[in-house]
Amino acid sequence: MAATAQQTVEKTSAGAEIAAPARGRRWRGVTPWLFLIAPLTLLIVFTYAPIANMVAYSFTDWDGVSPELHYTGADNYTEIFTREDLFRVFFVSGYYLAASAVQIAAALYFATILSFNVRFRNFFKGVLFFPYLINGVAIGFVFLYFFQDGGTLDSVLSLFGVHTDHAWLGTSTSANTSLAGVSVWRYLGLNFVLFLGAIQSIPGELYEAAELDGANRWHQFRYIIAPGIKPVLSLTVILSISGSLSVFEIPYIMTGGATGTETFVIQTVNLAFRFNKTGLASAAAVVLLLIILLVTWVQRRMVPDDKVDLV
């Protein structure tokens, strides 16, 4: 009896010894998921659920307020793809695309220059990044005064003896170019900081070695900096394209879509909140999302993200 008791005690203690690591292992497996619960819940509740909702609305004729909505199948999508006036606004994105090319080139230029030892380097970094910190609505108002007749731009030009007598936001071409210029001014800082960070992560010995080999600044840029920042460059291109297709704040505040500055997003907002066509507007938003995903996919296929190995 005593022996069996002894045995059971031994058995249970041995069992406990085996169980403890097993439980520990199980806990170790669960722990990452426990940590992930909070971010995943936030992500699903505030990102994916609304998108799923929007996709669901895009198949209905919901007006945004009514408690009743009817399933209309793909009618909204047919309407979007058959009404050419809904697609014509994408031409406006062309101005912003062209502006992003200028923007990337300028950002790359400034980032390269300011990555070398230049006087007042930090001051210039601050100056270039500052516009990105300003609120978009404030930028809209600032540049409304800037482009006004006799406003800042005209006064500055007249200091140099140039009198244009030209309403900057007056014609479609001029207005779109001006607005695209504002958006370059606004987002240059972001691109600049991304490029600067990428350039500064290139080890400094490479420049030294290149200099010993007799490379000048252009060679350093061409063979060290350019390949070194390729992943960031392709990211910036994706961001610029998707940004150009979905411009909203600046034209909405400055012209309200008049003078041919209406973009796809302004049009979508008008459909949803002016004409109560929330279903159609949701479909438009889904189409925009798909176009951006398609462009990103094509771009990734054309420029695959190779591992960069400088050394």
Partner: peptide, 21 residues
């Protein structure tokens, strides 16, 4: 999508009148 009380309706008319569209 006429918007008889909306600003866009007037905007379009004015743009048309001054030859911007």
């Amino acid at each position: 999508e006429t918007g008889i009380y909306a600003p866009e309706y007037r905007q379009k008319l004015v743009d048309l009148a001054r030859g911007a569209t």
